[in-house]
Design a protein around this nucleic acid. Structure first.
Lengths: 224, 224
DNA sequence: CGGCCGCATTAAAATCCCGTCATTTAAGCA
DNA sequence: TGCTTAAATGACGGGATTTTAATGCGGCCG
């Protein structure tokens, strides 16, 4: 997890920086707006912490510049200003959170981890793909090689689950958990049968075969 | 509207560039992958058109680099390769569209405008609500008052349709059109029955009643 | 080489979905 | 109020979907 910190006050800056490093983050610390913006644009950070009062280019301007390009980078604003108005201005410019000085380090850390968690969790992906297979979750539409394929509810659920775990091995137990809500083994071969039926529809007439069997382990869906 | 064009063949490049400018786009034309990537990262383009064969850094690599940072920039790939495999590789790397040479300028323009239109329009709402009812289209999950409700396929489709037309009267004919694909009246009371079943699940044990009957007209879903 | 085990495949059985229809209830109107 | 008609309700049943059970097949190990 990589964090960009823009803070000109060296005492506060190293205080925060140290705290973040302690928590296992990689921190880039810049002390002016101009170089801050540059760094932000060149490196894929997971979060940016930005003080509003900065030399050369103020924090709000940095934020606006970033928002023009990186829609998703989570931004936490630091400010000495406590007015509601300032808070609003910060959030309007595109910040995701706002923290007023002075603050406890623990609070900063908590907010940063919240921001990262929020942005990391699969941002509502509605299109899943593998090779020439596409699954549109909103339209509930499955296509392979441009050709539409009708799936039953369980088949669809299985395919979705496999795709969300693309490249990872998925055990039968995991499938039972997610496609049914069983937390136990039903002592039958439901899973095998379902996998078979799904294969008939999405793999049988196509190449490459997407669903691989791993004897004694489970299944993997992967392109290639 | 600002477009980045990466194409090393100067004849084709200026041909495309001229065409785009004629259509009112601002075009930046680069002829190698390295500078292309740099430009793409520094400027907020609305679309990038990328040839796969480029000096210094090939098109696919450029695309992957961009996808690491700019999730949303629409990318159109140009290529001399017609194989399905190449097409797939392009789309897998993160391209949004793929055009094989040779092509008509008009087609390129059409595709570019389609890409821009698609990315500009507000990204598909996936959560529909009314009062304390929520429908998550991605998870296919319906809740009322925090409590999960299981719906059948048709019931779900009907609810989705009613929600998309919140506050508007929806005739039985309209429902037949959208929930089934009937363009004719099946002469039975399917719709009535379906509405009844949906009500049993989402309205019976709750207040306020969301589905209202308008005698001789149809139904409305509204909170209030 | 032979047997066992795990998965694939197929068929049959059970279950669920949902369209139909008959009947009841209620709204609108004279 | 009583009549007409639309909508609500309840029950049934056929077909689709899903589960179960039986059998086939092939790899792997002794």
């Amino acid at each position: 997890m990589r964090i960009l910190l823009l803070e000109d006050d060296s005492r506060i800056g190293s205080f925060i920086s140290e705290g973040l490093k302690q928590s296992g983050y990689a921190v880039d610390h810049r002390t002016d707006g101009e170089s801050g913006r540059e760094f932000a644009l060149l490196t894929p950070y997971d979060t940016a912490i930005i003080d509003l009062m900065l030399p050369k280019l103020d924090g709000l301007s940095v934020i606006r510049a970033l928002r023009g390009q990186k829609q998703t980078l989570p931004i936490l604003v630091l400010s000495a200003k406590t007015e509601v108005e300032d808070r609003v201005r910060g959030l309007e410019a595109g910040a995701d959170d706002y923290l007023t000085k002075p603050f406890a380090l623990s609070e900063l850390l908590a907010r940063v981890s919240a921001l990262i968690r929020r942005s990391t969790q699969p941002g509502e992906q509605s299109l899943l793909t593998a090779a020439d297979l596409t699954v549109d979750l909103l339209k509930r539409e499955v296509k392979r090689g441009g050709q539409k394929i009708e799936l039953q509810r369980r088949e669809f659920a299985l395919l979705e689950y496999l795709l969300r775990n693309r490249g990872r091995v998925v055990t039968k137990m995991m499938i039972l958990n997610h496609v049914w809500d069983y937390s136990f083994d039903p002592q039958t071969n439901v899973v095998d049968v379902l996998v078979y039926r799904l294969r008939q529809k999405i793999d049988k007439d196509f190449e490459p075969k997407l669903i691989q069997t791993l004897r004694r382990s489970g299944y993997v869906l992967d392109a290639g």
